[in-house]
Amino acid sequence: MKKGVKFSNVIIFMGAWSTTKIPMFLFEMGLLGKKFALIRLVLSIIAIIK
């Protein structure tokens, strides 16, 4: 923020960073199934972009 970045860009970055972690995705695939993990990942990315 001190370098002139918009607050919305910070929120987008933090959201993307926190929801698209590969180890968490692999854990979800193993525990909850591939379909669930993919749906959650896609919906998270869509929500961050909007």
Rank of each mutant, 00 (worst) to 15 (best):
F13V: 05
M24F: 12
S8K: 10
K2S: 09
K21S: 15
A47P: 02
K3V: 01
K50Y: 13
W17Y: 13
V42D: 03
E28P: 00
K35Q: 12
I11E: 06
R40Y: 12
L41I: 04
F7D: 07
G30F: 08
V42H: 02
I11M: 10
S44T: 08
I45E: 01
L32D: 03
F7R: 11
I22K: 11
G33P: 01
F7T: 07
I45N: 02
N9L: 04
F36V: 06
G15Q: 05
I46D: 01
T19M: 11
I22N: 05
S18H: 10
F36Y: 13
R40K: 15
L41A: 09
I22D: 03
I12C: 05
V5Y: 02
L38Q: 05
I45R: 01
W17A: 14
F13P: 00
A16G: 11
S44A: 14
P23M: 06
R40F: 14
G30E: 09
L41G: 00
S18W: 10
F27Q: 10
L26Y: 05
I12K: 15
I46V: 15
R40S: 15
G30Y: 04
K6R: 11
G4C: 04
S8F: 01
L43N: 11
I22W: 14
K50Q: 10
I46L: 15
F25N: 02
V42T: 10
I22S: 06
F25E: 02
S8G: 03
G33E: 05
S44C: 13
G15Y: 02
V10P: 00
A37S: 12
T20M: 12
F25Q: 03
L43P: 00
N9V: 01
K50H: 07
M29S: 01
V5I: 08
N9D: 14
L41V: 02
K35W: 08
G33F: 05
I48Y: 01
